[in-house]
Each structure stands twice: as structure tokens, then as C-alpha cells.
Amino acid sequence: MRHPLGLAALFMIALATAAQAQQLPFKVATLADGLEHPWSIALLPDGDLLVSERPGRLQIIDAASGRKQAVGGMPDVRAESEAGAMGLALDPDFAGSGRLYLCYSTGWTLSPGNRLSAFTLKDNILSGEQVLLDGLPGARWHNGCRVEISPEGFLFASMGDATDAQAAQDGTALGGKIFRLNRDGSVPADNPFATSFVWSYGHRNPQGLAFRPSDGALWSTEHGPDTQDELNLIEKGGNYGWPLCHGTDACGALANYHPAVAEFEHDSTIAISDLIFYRGDAFPDWKGDILFVSLKTGRLYHLKLDGNRVAKAEILLDDEFGRLRDIAESPDGSLYLATDNGEDRILRVTPR
């Protein structure tokens, strides 16, 4: 059976997995515990962590002591299965304005939805909600809801198909899309579809967004059905195939189709989650590379790119800490990982 990364890359993954028994260039310690399904980590200007928890909470975690402090003023959140308080991003002017963006689930059984809103955080309390995108489809599963700010200052957010696969190819539906907004909630004039927030479509459940520092290109990680989790390079107006086309498969049925750059794996799922491009100096061999985490397999991956293709893939952690939901980089270049096991921790990865 063919593999999208090729035999050489598979061999490199096998070597890296075997190397877990040997000395690794990093160590992992618990920064904070006692969390419940942490979903997104944002680094505050002072280096402390702001963490969303899916049951409907925000926590500020002291980067030195791990002490937690709950944020007040949270909106009413529909917390069930995969739905809840999810994607989180700070405004570029957060230090002055306290403005942040949160994607969260709304309603309940009869009217489930998702919403993207802006808030002001001051004195550990949220206030002044400004709803930017409302009426997004919602379900117990496939809510997407990753939030990221582009280098140019646009607000991007992902939306899963909310278990309605056909919505991903429906230009009138909001499910299965990645959105691009001005930070005031208006539609950018150069979006690909007139008067629409939609930037790309044909997505199943994209839960990772990151911009490559070298060129500002948007990359995404996306859950496949039960195989072929995807790493995608997101192009303006691109169609990413779901539910008609999967992974790196060729697909002649769709115009403007963009196959995945890589898939993990062709015959199984790792339940891929968030990604970053590493920018720091603590791990110089990773600089400019992709790091991402997975849920089902509990892995931390390192990918080295050659242009827009994966030249090398290695597994740095392999289920030592259970499910891994989020990854973030600290100002000193160390990493934070959020587990997703129900009784959860924020882990810190530092050089050995």
C-alpha cells in the first residue's frame, strides 16, 4: 500500500520512534495540573498562559509557578462531547486593549451552534462581548473553532462540518469552511467570494491553523473520517475536497481541488490536532519547522519542509502523556503541550 510520505519518510519515522529509548534533546515536566480538557493556549504579554477549557472556562496560568486563576465573565457555553470553549487568540494590540477572540459553542440540543466573538480582558474578567460570527453550525462533534491572527492582522477561524458533510461543498452553508475577517468583524474587500467571510471550503474538521514565518502562508491540520488526517496548505478560495476527496488522493471530480500536502495515515487515524511553526532558539534544529500534536495516538511530531512538501517526519513523543490537544511556544523557545484526557495538565518541554 502506498504511503503519502514515501518509504524514506516512513523509515525516518521508524528510526525516530526507536530513538525514544535513547537520549532525547528535551525533557518534559508538568507546569500545571487539575485542568479539564484544555483546548487552546495563548501566551500573554508577560509570558503567562491563557488557557481555554472545553467545559466553558478560561484560566490564567503563571508560567513560573503553575498557579491557576479563573477568568470571570465567561459567556454561556454549550459544553458537550467535542463542543465547548475552544479556539482562542489575542489581538495584536492586546497589551494595550485587552482584546481577545474566542470561538465557543452555543445553544443546546434543539438549537446547537457555534460563535466567534471578541471580548475585553481586564482584571481577570471578560466583558464587552462583540459577536463577530454567529449562527455557525454546531453539533456534538466536528466544530472546528481554531482561531489565529495572520501576519497582516486578519482574523482567521476554522469551522468543521458539524456532522453535515455535504455542507462543506455548499457555498451557501457555513459548515466545513475556513473564514477570514477584519478584526472589527467586517468582510475584507479582497476575500475570494464577494461579501463572504469564506476563505476556503471543503473541510471536514480543521482544528489547527498556523502561518509560516518565512512567507506568511497559512497551513492547517484537519481530521479525516477514520483515516487520512491531513496537513494542508490553505490557498485563497481553495476547495479541500471533503466529503468527495480525501487526503493526498488524486481527485478529478472537483474544480480547484487542493489535495493534502501529507496525510497521517493512509489506513488509520492519528486524530491530528493543533500545529505551530517553531520560531525560537531553544531547539535550533527545529527552527522554521512544523510541530504538531495528535489525540488518538498522543504524539508530538516534527516535520521538516522542503518548499511545500514534507522532506522529513519524526515522532518526538509517542503516547507518553495520553491525548495531546494543543501546542504553543513560549517566549524563551520552550514548548507548552495541553493534554486532553479529562484529568489534564499543561506540560512544558525544555532543552535537556
Rank of each mutant, 00 (worst) to 15 (best):
K312G: 07
S127K: 13
K27Q: 14
N124D: 10
A70D: 12
S294Y: 01
H302L: 06
L88F: 11
G241W: 04
F264L: 13
L155P: 10
P188I: 02
D123E: 14
Q130R: 11
T17G: 05
A210K: 03
P284I: 03
D249L: 09
Q228K: 15
G238V: 06
A19H: 06
K312N: 13
P75A: 08
W108H: 15
T227N: 08
A250K: 09
L337D: 14
S214K: 08
F154R: 08
F211H: 13
G128E: 08
L7P: 05
L275Q: 06
E265R: 15
P243G: 01
G34L: 00
Y278M: 09
R352H: 04
D215A: 12
V147T: 10
I346T: 12
A139W: 07
A162E: 02
Y301W: 14
P188L: 03
T30F: 14
A64W: 01
P225R: 11
Y336E: 10
G307S: 14
V261Q: 01
D62R: 11
G176A: 10
Y240D: 08
K27N: 11
R78I: 03
E36I: 11
G288W: 05
L35P: 04
A19G: 07
S334C: 08
R348H: 13
D91H: 13
L110W: 02
I346L: 15
T109K: 11
D46S: 05
V293L: 04
E82D: 13
L31M: 15
G333I: 04
R352W: 02
M159S: 06
Y201H: 13
D344F: 01
Y278F: 09
A338I: 06
Q22G: 07
G47M: 05
I60H: 10
P259G: 03
I290T: 09
L50H: 00
Q59A: 12
T350K: 10
G175V: 01
A338H: 07
G135V: 05
L31C: 13
V261K: 01
V71C: 03
A194Y: 12
C245T: 03
A255N: 12
P192V: 06
